[in-house]
Amino acid sequence: MLTVDVVVRRLYEDSPEGFVAARAAAIEDARKAGDREAAKRLAALKKPTVAAWVVNLVALRRPELLDELVGLSTALRAAQRELQGDQLRELSTQRRKFVSSLVGAARKLAVESGSAAGKLPLGDVEATFTAALADPEIAEQVRSGRLIRAVSYAGFGEVPKPRLRLVTDDDPVPEAEPAPAPVAAPEIDHRRRELERRRRELDRELGAAMADERRADIRLERAEEAERDAGHLVEDLDAELAELERRRTEAVADVARRKAARRAAERESAAARRRVGDVQAALDDLT
């Protein structure tokens, strides 16, 4: 029996169309072999979307390209942190060309695996590679070769620090703003207390909002997990239905064969009875 890692690689390397049936077969093989842990691990695998599968092909068959992706991503983030304008522009151009080359490599691998080029979701593939360049965590997911859905990224890289400008004698001197009127000490104390009170209120509101956010995130994760489990169940049921339909087709064909055999036997039986009658009649004539 193949190792679990080899089976998992094949599942995510082969077309998603056969994923459910192949996973079911692998689980059955593991159960027959008495490896309950392997069967459990295989049963937890999720079917990838077509876009995720195309990205996985690059990770599994051309891992050196994703090594280059990680290196370019590190250089881009470093350039943004250090505000190296020329280098950043050069790296950004290199990023666009590199993402295009990744998409091209992914397309070629998918076509070699039997997919029609016109039906490939290359936009989602490009968005995933772009997100991997921007986010190291996404890059690691992509490199695993077990991505189950495409990802996207709204921005790119870290937020740069503000640029500082040196003022020279040639720069126009702005007109001085009028100095604020002096504020009496009691009024200052009143404002300070009011600001402190408002800050405490905002701190409480922030704490409550963050708690609500955490609870909402937990509910979202549970809802997403429930949705994935439901989808997984549907996939399993679809596979079972397909198997039952195959068995039904075979049974119908077997019934047709048996019906034909029965009719042939009936004809043979009738012919035999006629022959018996003929022989009996001949015997009666002799007597």
Rank of each mutant, 00 (worst) to 15 (best):
Gly71Pro: 04
Gly85Arg: 12
Leu241Glu: 11
Arg149Pro: 00
Leu69Thr: 03
Ala39Lys: 07
Asp284Gly: 06
Ala242Lys: 12
Val99Asp: 05
Val255His: 06
Gly114Trp: 09
Phe129Lys: 03
Glu140Ile: 03
Ala134Val: 09
Arg257Trp: 02
Leu220Ala: 14
Ala239Pro: 02
Leu60Gln: 09
Gly123Arg: 13
Lys47Glu: 11
Phe156Glu: 04
Val4Glu: 10
His232Arg: 15
Glu224Trp: 02
Gly231Pro: 02
Val70Arg: 15
Asp170Val: 06
Pro121Asp: 08
Thr128Met: 03
Arg10Trp: 01
Ala132Met: 03
Ala43Asn: 13
Leu45Thr: 05
Tyr153Leu: 04
Leu283Gln: 04
Arg62Glu: 06
Arg163Cys: 05
Glu240Gly: 02
Arg199Asn: 15
Ala226Val: 07
Ala185Asp: 08
Glu221Lys: 13
Arg222Gly: 00
Val103Thr: 03
Glu266Phe: 03
Pro182Asn: 01
Leu11His: 10
Arg163Trp: 11
Ala209Gly: 02
Gly157Val: 11
Asp35Ile: 01
Asp189His: 01
Val173Thr: 15
Glu235His: 13
Ala132Arg: 04
Ala33Ser: 12
Arg96Cys: 00
Glu224Arg: 11
Asp171Thr: 05
Glu112Leu: 01
Thr93Gly: 10
Ile138Cys: 09
Leu206His: 11
Val70Ala: 15
Arg191Thr: 04
Pro182His: 01
Ala216Met: 05
Glu245Val: 14
